[in-house]
């Protein structure tokens, strides 16, 4: 009895955080008198977390209109820098074996699993119900594992040996397109982001991503996961900011080889289609998609950003 009291009294002296490491969402934290250390959400370019070069930001509010945090409002120059980083990363990333890319994507899943609570908390604070948030994060991790498995398989499945009427050995293989610009979904801010980034980089591409404008928190936290998962700098670059300001640069930049647009604005879609002809970008419009559904994960999405290269190899007799 005596011992018990002793323990109890000691416990009350220890700061609460140490007694029971809370989830990030734990409201008991608010009882603490100390000033909270808030995270500055910055953008992710070339493996680093700079603020926007423009110094601009926008206020992020939750569904009740409370000010959650300030997000960097990326400028066209941030986008340009991101494309330079992505371009530089293409050759070494695409030269890696599919097996190795698969290992790295599995590693992302591992890292995400350990930081689940943070992602759930971020989704909740952006107005998603707790149940849906848990669901979304779990699905995202499973999807990463799913795609990791495809990394060393898609190439042989989509390759072919072609019969030709001449003395050639003729075969076709998928090769990465290069730099992919991704306008991530506004809704499904996390699972939608992952479902578009992963198939692109899995196939040896690098990407520049514009995160959801109203729910960008998980995108930047995901960048932290990427940074600690052996994903080389420049392979994924994530910007936060306004679609209407940046999308014309995504579609117009001559060094971007493909663009994925996942939102629903018909005027924007048309503008992208016109602008992307400048260097014949591959355009993928993925609108009205339920990113939670299992149908949103399949190897054909990897193929979207692959180019089929056919080789005619002479056969000597």
């Amino acid at each position: 009895m005596k011992t018990k009291t002793k323990i109890a009294s000691r416990k009350s002296q220890i700061p609460r955080v140490l007694v029971n490491l809370p989830e990030a969402s734990d409201e008991r934290l608010d009882l603490d008198k100390r000033i909270k250390v808030l995270k500055t959400y910055k953008i992710y370019i070339d493996g680093k977390f700079p603020r926007s070069e423009s110094g601009r930001y926008y206020k992020l509010k939750d569904s009740k209109g409370n000010h959650i945090t300030n997000m960097s409002r990326a400028s066209r120059k941030d986008f340009r820098n991101a494309v330079v980083a992505a371009r530089n990363a293409v050759s070494s990333w695409s030269d890696r074996t599919g097996f190795n890319r698969g290992q790295i994507i599995y590693r992302i899943a591992e890292m995400l699993e350990t930081r689940k609570a943070q992602f759930i908390w971020e989704l909740v604070s952006q107005g998603i119900s707790r149940e849906n948030s848990v669901n979304e994060v779990n699905t995202a991790i499973d999807r990463l594992v799913y795609y990791a498995g495809w990394a060393d398989k898609y190439q042989q499945i989509f390759s072919s040996v072609n019969p030709v009427n001449a003395s050639y050995f003729n075969f076709s293989v998928p090769e990465p397109t290069g730099v992919v610009g991704i306008i991530a979904p506004e809704e499904f801010s996390f699972i939608g982001l992952i479902s578009n980034i992963i198939p692109a980089i899995l196939g040896g591409n690098t990407c520049v991503v514009l995160a959801s404008e109203s729910m960008p928190l998980t995108a930047i936290s995901f960048a932290e996961v990427l940074q600690s998962s052996d994903v080389p700098a420049g392979v994924v670059n994530i910007l936060t900011g306004f679609e209407k300001e940046l999308v014309s640069h995504f579609s117009g930049h001559m060094d971007v080889n493909a663009i994925i647009y996942t939102r629903n604005d018909p005027a924007q879609i048309k503008a992208i289609q016109i602008s992307a002809t400048s260097n014949l970008k591959r355009i993928h419009i993925r609108k009205d998609q339920n990113w939670m559904s299992p149908e949103s994960q399949n190897p054909y999405i990897i193929l979207d950003n692959q180019e089929i290269k056919t080789i005619w190899h002479p056969i000597g007799f």
């Binding site: 340009r80 371009r87 640069h249 117009g252 930049h253 001559m254 060094d255 400048s278 260097n279």
Partner: peptide, 9 residues
């Protein structure tokens, strides 16, 4: 042109 260019060209 107002477009960022690429070394490819």
């Amino acid at each position: 042109t107002g477009r960022y260019h690429s070394k490819d060209y």
